[in-house]
Design a protein around this nucleic acid. Structure first.
Lengths: 350, 350
DNA sequence: GTTGGCACTCGAAGAGTGAGAGTGCTAATC
DNA sequence: GATTAGCACTCTCACTCTTCGAGTGCCAAC
C-alpha cells in the first residue's frame, strides 16, 4: 500500500473522527477538526484516491466517508500507535482483579468480567489448552456402587474431575488398584499423548477380571479426554445493545444469536490462534476486522484476542468482541493489561 | 372479581386475540373472530366495564383494548384451561432430552436448553437446593504442598469439590487423618446443620498440631458451605430480540441488562419459591406477570417457574421468562412436561 | 499539485393528508 | 333493563411533498 504522508494522515483522521462521532466524515469537517494546511478540495482529491484504493467508502452519494474494513486494517497495521494505559486506568483494572481466587477457572472468569466492564464490550476467554500439560495425579473414588469419581491433577495446578459409571460389582479395593495402576503409568505424560491404548496398557497388570476392567479403563480414558476439552466464557453480550452501531434490531439479533452459540465462537477463536501460530506472528494480539470474521452477524464487529499463559506450554486466549468502530489502541492496551495481570495471578499457582 | 359469563368470555377472547395478533383488539374484530350472539355495541359496553375494573386498557383513545397485568392475572387464574401437549409436541421435547447424561448439573443444563428451544423464550434453572441433602463422603486429597482438593459426595448423588489452600508442612498422612475424622463425624448430616463448630469438633481428636489443624478444618468448612451455594443457568436471552414485544431497543436493552446479572435473577427465583411455600400453594407452577415482577426491565414479561425434585427433600426450579403476551397454557404445559422428564432422569440417579 | 467555485445528489426531518379502526353516546327496540 | 343501530368524534399509521444541509465531483484558474 503506497500512501504519501498526507493520505496516511487523512485516513488516520477519518478513522479517528468516525470512531468518535459515528458520523460519516466529510472533507470540510476534516479541515475544521484537524490542522491540515491544505483546502477541503485537496482533501476531496485525496479522499477520492483513498476510496479508489478501497480504504474508505460512502454510505451514499452525498454523505461523508467511512473507513472500510480494509481501511481499518491499514489503520491498525500501520497508522495507529498503541499507548500505555494511564496509571488511573491501570488502577481501575487492578481494582477489579480479585487476587484471592484459588482456581484457574475462576481467575479466568474474573478476568473476562473485568475486561467486559472496562471495555464496555463483549469479552471472552478460552480455558487453557491443556493438551500439553501432563498428569500429576489420577485418583478414582468410589461414590456408590456403580458410580465413581475420576479426579485428575494436572501440571499447572489444574484439577479436573468427572463422574463415571462403573460396573456395580466392583469394590473399593479393586478400584483403588486400577486407579493406582493408571496413575503409576501415566503420571508425567502430556494429555495429548494419552490414548485409549495407553490407558489400557497401564491397567493391564491388575488382577481385576477383564470385561469389568475394560469398562473402568474406558471411563478413565473418557475422563482424561474430557479434561482437555476447551471451554469458553463469554460475558457482556447485552452491552452491544447500548452501542449505536447495533441500534438496528436485526443486526443486534444476528450478533447475539451467533454469540449464543458459544461452541461456534470457541471454534473461531481456535482458528484465529492456529492461523497466528502458523503465520509465526509475534504480535502480542490477534485482530480480525469486519468481514474478515467468518462468523455470521459479526460484519460490524472487530475481534481482538491475546494469549495468556498458565505455564510455558499451557496457554489460552482472552479477548474482546466490539464494534469495528472502536478505539483500537485503547482496547488493545486494555486487553494487554488484563492479560498481563492474569498471567501474574497464574504464576502464583505454579 | 364478579364477572358475568359473557364478560369472562370477552376477556378470554381479548387475551387470546391479543396474544395471537399482537394488535389491540376492538369490538368489531371481536365479533368477527368469535361467535358472540350479540352486537358489537354490546361488547363495547362490556369492554367499558372491563376497563373500569382494570382488566383491560387502551394504548390510546381510538385503538382497541389490550389486557392489563390484572387482566392477564384473571385469565391465568380463572379463565384459561391447561391442555396436555399433543403426542407430537411431547416427542419433540423427548427428543431433546439427553438421557445419557451422568451429572446432575449437565442434566439441568440440558433441560434448560430444551426449554428455551421449545418455548422460544428465555429459560432458566436453579441448581438443586442442597441444604437438606446430607454428606455421604468427604475426602481431602493432597494436590501438592500447600494445596488440597476437598471432594464431597452428597446424598442425591451430587459430587462437589473445591481446591483449598492448606499449610505447606502438612503431609499426606495428616491430611488423611483429618479427612477421615471429618467424614466419620459428619456423614449423614444435612448440610444446613453443619457449622464451623461442628467441623471443628469433628476434627478434634486427630493428633495434628492445633493451628495447622484449625486452618484445614476451616477450609473444609468453607468447601462444605460452598457446596450448597445456588447456581443459576440462563439460556436463550437472544431470543427475546426476535419478539415484536421487544422491538424497541430500549426495552430489549433493559431486559437483557437485568438478565445479565444472573445473581439477581437467582435471588428473585428464590423469592418466588419462598413466597409460594409460605402461601402453601399447591399449584405445580408459579407465575408472575408484568409489574408483579420486581426486577427492572421485566414489565413486559411473565415469569413462570416449576419445581423439580432431585430427591424428596432436594429440589430446584426450572422455568421460563417470556413476554406477557404469551400462550400461557401452552408454555405452562411445556414447562410441566420438561420438569416431568427431568424428574424422571433424576430418579435414575438416586 | 492546489484551490475556489458551482451544480448536483441524497438523506433526514417536518408538515400535511386521507384512510381506517375504534370509541362513546344517544335514542330506539326487544 | 339489556341490547342494538347509528353517528360524530378521535387518534394513529402510512404516504407524500418539501425543504434544508452536508457533501460530492469536476472544471478552470493559480
Amino acid at each position: 500500500m503506497q500512501l504519501d504522508n498526507r493520505k496516511k494522515e487523512v485516513l488516520h483522521a477519518i478513522v479517528d473522527d468516525y470512531v468518535s462521532t459515528n458520523e460519516p466524515v466529510g472533507s470540510k469537517s476534516l479541515i475544521e477538526r484537524h490542522s491540515f494546511n491544505v483546502s477541503s478540495a485537496t482533501l476531496r482529491n485525496d479522499m477520492a484516491e483513498l476510496e479508489h484504493l478501497g480504504l474508505i467508502e460512502k454510505p451514499h452519494t452525498s454523505a461523508g466517508r467511512i473507513p472500510s474494513d480494509k481501511g481499518y486494517r491499514e489503520y491498525v497495521n500501520s497508522l495507529m500507535t498503541i499507548e500505555q494505559l494511564t496509571p488511573r486506568e491501570q488502577l481501575e483494572i487492578e481494582k477489579r482483579i480479585d487476587s484471592s481466587i484459588d482456581e484457574v477457572t475462576d481467575l479466568i472468569k474474573n478476568a473476562t468480567h473485568t475486561l467486559s466492564e472496562t471495555t464496555g464490550f463483549v469479552s471472552l476467554a478460552m480455558s487453557p489448552r491443556l493438551k500439553k500439560s501432563f498428569l500429576k495425579q489420577l485418583k478414582i473414588l468410589m461414590i456408590e456402587p456403580g458410580k465413581a469419581l475420576v479426579v485428575m491433577v494436572l501440571s499447572a495446578g489444574v484439577v479436573k474431575d468427572k463422574v463415571v459409571r462403573i460396573p456395580n460389582f466392583l469394590n473399593d479395593e479393586q478400584i483403588m488398584k486400577i486407579s493406582g495402576a493408571i496413575e503409576k503409568h501415566l503420571t508425567g505424560k502430556p494429555l495429548d499423548e494419552i490414548t485409549l491404548v495407553t490407558v489400557e496398557t497401564a491397567g493391564k497388570n491388575t488382577d481385576v477380571p477383564e470385561p469389568l476392567l475394560k469398562q473402568v479403563l474406558y471411563e478413565a480414558y473418557a475422563a482424561i479426554k474430557q479434561a482437555d476439552e476447551l471451554n469458553i466464557y463469554l460475558e457482556g453480550e447485552h452491552r452491544m445493545l447500548s452501542l449505536p452501531d447495533f441500534s438496528s434490531l436485526g443486526r443486534a439479533r444476528d450478533l447475539l444469536g451467533t454469540l449464543s452459540d458459544s461452541g461456534m465462537v470457541a471454534g473461531y477463536v481456535n482458528e484465529m490462534e492456529n492461523a497466528a501460530r502458523e503465520a509465526g506472528s509475534d504480535d502480542s494480539y490477534m485482530i480480525r476486522i469486519g468481514q474478515e470474521i467468518t462468523l455470521e452477524g459479526l460484519d460490524d464487529c472487530s475481534f481482538i484476542t491475546a494469549t495468556y499463559n498458565l505455564t510455558d506450554s499451557v496457554s489460552g486466549n482472552i479477548g474482546v468482541i466490539g464494534p469495528k468502530r472502536m478505539l483500537y489502541s485503547k482496547v488493545i492496551s486494555q486487553i494487554d493489561f488484563v492479560k498481563k495481570k492474569l498471567n501474574e495471578e497464574m504464576k502464583k499457582f505454579t
